[in-house]
Write a protein that binds this DNA or RNA. Structure first.
Lengths: 208, 208
DNA sequence: TGTCAATTGTCAGCGGCTGTCACTAGCCTC
DNA sequence: GAGGCTAGTGACAGCCGCTGACAATTGACA
């Protein structure tokens, strides 16, 4: 059982996060000031910065949760699976279990709307991409360990992860630009784009 | 022949850029204030912002020049080349001609040092990555046109470009973390990592 | 040389973010 | 259950990136 203090803290954090997401998705990220968020929860601006390192961190908090889940999923894949297949399965798992990951903080619908805000707000997209390369490094190490390789000696783990996550990026982007914002849509796109990695590398597209 | 005004403007811009790069690479990006840069050139802070949209833009200016060159190189590749091969050749061309691109503004050595500052400064790395995905979109369209495809109907152009540029990212990073900061080193890494794309996708690394 | 337009400096101000310090409220002990 | 202790908060001051507005300066061109 948590202490009252801890419960209060958690409630404040979640209130701040919810208000922030609500404001970001309705009036836009840049248009929302930290003062506004703090005021909505009736705390001082200073308090906001005690819970989040910056406005960005609040905006990316949900994504961060799903990413953590993805990393765990990769770790949990059976070791006999080929590396790329493990990644593919982990991502698809992620899209299926996203509901239970996010719903404790916000409805999935808010999550999906926030994804599009991130994609369409330059500074957020930049932060998101940067975070992604950090994750890539983590995943590369996981893969290397799985396969009993040295990440620094063998380029394959990093290359494979880079290839994989770049395709995920394209997928995200196409999803956010499309008209179907459902989870089914993103799952379908994921498979479709991953299947194109092979063909995209083949010599001449015109003869295919 | 340019007018005096234009020459003066250009000189101011270059002076600002040079001072900025010099300060960034010596004392770090975050530690350098815009006031400092402006003062070094003896102009007002306001003037700095008339030449650069922000501190970031100054920091990424050199990179931007080389990127523009790369895009041109891709456009100029002979149409019979396979897509991935065209990209590979364009990048290698870029590394060979980088000297003449950059030297009008700063010595290559400064460029290389700045690359590492970008790689090691979170906010700069983020901006750099964001810019990269913009370029990816451009390149994807170039490729699609070359091959007579519709970018939105066929996933291959975007997937191929994403794969390619993610490998370039890994290369950059490894180069900036390594000990050999020469151009030869980055050329060698480029080829080495690109050659690993195929093997990295193959099923089982343990048997290879 | 005088007029016009482009460039610049100055000033005021906003928003993100941080350090400091005093104050409050939950916790824990006697 | 009264006391001290400490985590959490609010209030304030201040830095830095960045912008708008307006006045002053400087090159262009007749």
């Amino acid at each position: 059982m948590e202490t009252l203090r801890e419960r209060k803290k958690q409630r404040t954090r979640e209130a701040l996060l919810r208000s922030a997401l609500e404001l970001f998705t309705t009036q836009g990220y840049e248009q929302t000031t930290v003062d506004e968020i703090a005021e909505a929860v009736d705390v001082s601006q200073r308090t906001f910065f005690r819970y989040f390192a910056g406005k960005e961190e609040a905006a990316l908090a949900l994504t961060e949760m799903t990413v953590a889940r993805f990393v765990e999923a990769v770790r949990a894949r059976p070791p006999h699976e080929a590396p790329m297949e493990a990644l593919r399965q982990a991502v698809l798992e992620g899209w299926y279990s996203i509901n239970e990951v996010v719903e404790s903080v916000a409805p999935i619908e808010l999550y999906l709307r926030m994804c599009r805000v991130i994609e369409s707000t330059p500074v957020l997209l930049a932060a998101h991409l940067r975070r992604s390369v950090e994750i890539e490094e983590t995943i590369a190490q996981v893969l290397a360990e799985r396969e009993g390789l040295d990440v620094d000696a063998d380029p394959r783990p990093r290359v494979a992860v880079a290839v994989f996550s770049s395709v995920m990026r394209v997928t995200e982007r196409q999803w956010s630009l499309g008209e179907d914002f459902s989870l089914e849509a993103i799952r379908a796109l994921t498979s479709r784009y991953l299947d194109q990695v092979g063909p995209a590398l083949l010599g001449n597209w015109r003869t295919a």
